[in-house]
Design a protein around this nucleic acid. Structure first.
Lengths: 244, 244
DNA sequence: TTTAATTTATTTGTCAAGTAAATTAATTAT
DNA sequence: ATAATTAATTTACTTGACAAATAAATTAAA
């Protein structure tokens, strides 16, 4: 008996999404380019503006375009970043599909490898950036958000130094998720992550010692992870106490 | 000087997305539940159906709901899965933001750890599932897609056995991406991934030897990765030759 | 009394045609 | 030259309709 596949009926907006996405991926629209206006698109596709707009919302959520209102506005192609990955992780976390301990088990395992790779790839430029990022960690704290960004910088630079965009995306996503959690919990920054915690990592990387760098990163990740788990747990208990 | 934050104007559809998302995350709508119909939502929010529909498209892309037409249709809350993560990886790959070698560098590093964890968590049920999955790999090949699924099964089970949903999501996403690539390249399945390749891994896991399991997985990942990179490169060159 | 065909109700999918609001460019008045 | 006004473009949003899918209820037929 011949095996037929079920015929799936697609929405018009989905068809539009596919065509625009392909066009973007093929480079027919490059980052920064403006797509035709909604009215033009609806004429070209022979569909209503509503269908076009639903398609644009989908492309926006997927990170392919951003839209601006006004005379010079429209839908602009964006350079795809790790942002969606980050959003996906965040949603999984918020939906209780992955826990902080699980995230940190993974991070403790792979970020030492990132540091190891970074230590094998030190250039004067990277060295300078690492030093400056380390310096900036001791700046007076103006806001929690800014402080978190500064404490995150070293991790970002090391991730770039790994030379692997996948590791880079993972690190940036996880740091983004961590930032969200930290900002929600709103702890004392000095307790959560004292300045200078990254010094041993940076020193090991700069000395070009991969194993030492990996070890330093592992210790840091373990310590910070323990800290975060503890503080977040206390926060959650306090919150559920307030609600009862 | 006081530091004011720029006031961001949000779209109505974004506001709706936020409210519905929060409601779902708070468990006010559980997986399987039906959201109110578009007309009801537009009345409750005091907005037009078009705005509601744009919001629903966003929630759909984010993996929170699926929609069905008809009398018993509507927007149904779904159990959030790794699917979005997988889509995010796929888009990054299609947009040439991460390459196959980069993906495989990461996979070669972390999947041995998954095997290591699995070997520490063997139960009779898991053992049975692993054996059956290994058996099924030798079934006559009916279609490439089905064959890939069978060769993927062992990896999925080991990922579950790791007891870490993050690892599980990563493995499933990467296998999903690999499947897409394999189906595009459409190689000879026997060459791409001969049956029995997973036997050493499964045997090591079942014997409860974490280090042996990790080693076996590493060797497998390296071999398969090399294979995939080679075959995909040949495919890409052939394709660009055809186009010129 | 089943069974088949038809009708009805509900819900999403789509369209058309508009108004509102944001934003920039062009024009006019000062 | 500067400021104020007007015009033009584009997205944001609304309203009100009809089409299509789907399941339940009803009716007709065997």
């Amino acid at each position: 008996m011949p095996k037929f596949k079920p015929v799936k009926q697609y929405r018009i907006s989905e068809e539009i999404v596919e065509q625009l996405k392909q066009s973007i991926l093929l480079g027919e629209f490059k980052a920064g380019d403006k797509l035709p206006s909604e009215r033009e698109l609806s004429e070209q596709f022979h569909v209503s503006r509503a269908a076009v707009r639903e398609a644009l919302r989908s492309l926006e959520i997927s990170g392919f375009i951003t839209t601006r209102q006004g005379a010079t506005g429209g839908a602009f192609v964006t350079d795809l970043t790790f942002q969606n990955l980050s959003n996906a992780f965040l949603d999984l976390f918020l939906a209780n599909k992955i826990s902080i301990p699980e995230i940190y088990q993974v991070r403790v395992f792979f970020e030492p490898e990132v540091a190891r790779l970074a230590a094998k790839n030190v250039t004067p430029e990277y060295a300078e950036r690492l030093k400056q990022a380390l310096e900036a960690e001791s700046d007076p704290i103006k806001s929690l958000s800014e402080d978190v960004d500064k404490k995150t910088a070293v991790h970002f630079i090391l991730a770039e130094m790994s030379g692997n965009h996948f590791y880079e995306s993972l690190v940036k996503s996880l740091m983004g998720l961590t930032k969200k959690i930290v900002e929600e919990v709103n702890p004392d920054p000095h307790v959560m992550h004292p300045a200078g915690m990254h010094r041993p990592i940076v020193e090991a990387v700069l000395s070009g010692d991969p194993e030492k760098a990996a070890k330093a990163m592992e210790e840091h990740a373990i310590e910070f992870g323990k800290n975060l788990i503890k503080i977040e747990k206390a926060y959650r208990e306090k919150k559920s106490f307030q609600m009862s």
